[in-house]
Design a protein around this nucleic acid. Structure first.
Lengths: 216, 216
DNA sequence: ATAAAAAATAACTCTCAGTCATTAACTGAC
DNA sequence: GTCAGTTAATGACTGAGAGTTATTTTTTAT
């Protein structure tokens, strides 16, 4: 009798129920305005119960980040399976990223905000989730590196840079774009994109082309 | 008798006194752990007084951001005065930025964190400071554009891209690097930089070189 | 010297994260 | 079935800290 396993599964279910409640509320009212009380209500638990599943509010929010990272990781792995030139692999990965930003602001915000918590302010946050996130981030980076290496091999990528460094730069560019999306509407940047009739995916493509066509 | 002017000046003084108290405390204990009570104490005011000068905690933090942006703006203007090739101007601007990040984490954090406040969660925040920050950010961007245009003119920059778009990309890269610094120590990225014996300024230089040497 | 205005205060309210003592539900042994 | 033990859930409680306001102190003008 798989007693413990079932227990585990049910626990996971409940954790997810809470997480979903949190996400839907955050989408409606924003991060800071969402209270544990409300999350509990929507998940049909009492407040106290939430703390049986997540150490604190911060952990709960980090779990959202983790979910987003897991999604990206899955997608990246699938992309890497495809039999495409390396340059195209990287491009698809970046588009996947941008799509996520575009259609799910909550995930994006979670990805940026909860994970900073510098030394001084870590304290309570559940170490495990934090670790998982770091691990996932690293793996995402390495999947980009893999794609770059493939691209260098197959000739679709010409660069003077080491793939790892290039991956880092691409990561920075990606992060910069995310930040740009979060900072919101009022922006010279949007105006520029608009007057050139471009969007972020276009700009990302431009960027990658520049990076990938460096006469060695 | 310049009565009102003196009043204004004194008011500004007191605002600064509060701001400095806030910055020093944040440096010691981090953003979220710093309370209005403590800030008041250090500034030698009572808590209530703080609210005569800043609408709320969020405004106070945004004022820190504003100060950082003002500093950068001044620096950028000075750089632009110099009689240097455009490519060098941009490079110096970026180095200035990276220096700031490096030596003043508080400013950096403020720059990233307080300014997101998306629609849902703006509410009380002092509109004026917000506006000022947006204005400053836009001007920073335009100063980069100016430098790029100079570079295209003097031939130090070869690019297929429009200067405005290129400025945007450089801005993204910069933001990505800031984010990287904030996210803190535990990082594959640091390891990569380490094993290649590089730091962020090096990587930025690489990045700019790539961008500036695109055969047209 | 005094009325008016400006600046500062500290006691207060209110919201919300996180805790804990208690209760309910389930599980298995007999 | 029922009782002991374990796991899950509850909601009343505490404490911290943001923001408010009625009151007092200080400054300025006449």
């Amino acid at each position: 009798m798989g007693k413990t396993e079932r227990k585990e599964r049910e626990r996971k279910r409940r954790k997810d129920r809470i997480l979903n409640a949190a996400i839907s509320l955050i989408e409606e009212k924003g991060f800071e305005k969402t209270t544990m009380e409300e999350i509990a209500e929507r998940a049909e638990f009492s407040k106290g119960t939430l703390y049986l599943y997540y150490n604190d509010k911060s952990s709960l929010f980090q779990a959202i980040k983790k979910r987003a990272l897991k999604y990206l990781h899955d997608q990246f792995l699938q992309i890497l399976q495809k039999d495409l030139p390396g340059a195209k692999l990287v491009h698809e990965m970046m588009i996947t990223f941008l799509d996520l930003i575009h259609e799910n602001a909550t995930f994006t915000k979670a990805m940026m905000l909860y994970g900073k918590k510098s030394e001084q302010e870590v304290e309570a946050t559940d170490g495990t989730i934090q670790e998982d996130c770091i691990q996932l981030e690293n793996e995402l980076l390495m999947l980009i590196v893999r794609s770059l290496q493939i691209g260098v091999q197959d000739g679709s990528i010409n660069t003077k840079l080491d793939p790892k460094l290039l991956a880092l730069q691409i990561g920075f560019q990606m992060n910069g774009m995310i930040q740009f999306c979060l900072t919101g509407s009022n922006k010279k940047g949007l105006q520029i994109l608009d007057e050139k009739n471009m969007d972020l995916p276009d700009l990302m493509e431009q960027f990658l082309q520049t990076q990938f066509s460096q006469a060695g």
